[in-house]
Design a protein around this nucleic acid. Sequence first.
DNA 1: GCCCAGGTGGGTA
DNA 2: TACCCACATGGG
Length: 221
Amino acid sequence: MKNLLLTVYERLFDDYGPQKWWPADSRFEVMVGAILTQNTSWTNVEKSVLSLKAAGVMSPVGIRLTQQAELAQLVYSSGYYNMKARKLKAFTKWLGEKFADDIEAMTRQEVSVLRPELLSVYGIGEETADDILLYALDIPIFVIDTYTKRLTTRLGLAPREGRYCDYQAKFMNSLPQDVSLFNEYHALIVTHSHNICTKREPQCEGCSLLEVCPTGKSRTK
DNA sequence: GCCCAGGTGGGTA
DNA sequence: TACCCACATGGG
């Protein structure tokens, strides 16, 4: 049987082309973006990223030296600003204590050790951890988000159990373990989701799974 | 005005 | 384990 998930990937890639994720100037900026984009549209995150850069604090040291209240103002536009300021503080504290801010050193850690370490940091859950591993550290791990779950469910490919790890296993067991493929696939799912009806359930009449929403009701172009 | 966005942590049963 | 809720701005 032809690998269905690979077929879906090829179809999305044909439709949208390379997505060039993650848009950022450094690995550290990817990590910051991964925290800021939690349940938040990227356009809001971009403003916060610019604010952090303008304030000269887009670095582990910069964030550690910034008061949490001031940090909250800098990331205001991405919402949950008090929570996210706290998360950025927790993450940079960990980065300093564990790796002396040496991000290259992170890549030399076994994923089996590094991922649980990331998950132990306040504010870093499974998706954010995997964003960091894949998009900042080029480690082949598949990122599962709301869009991915929704699409696989609509395609009838949802795993029997609906935990994060079940969805992740579904993708990782069906695809070659390739950083570029995982990078592109997740990005394509997000882009595609921005182009189809994203209403939770049911999807709008006639909104085909792999077609752009015919009603034009897609929300986040 | 309403709905949703590239989630996570804490509380309760 | 499985829900429920708080966290919050900004665009369609």
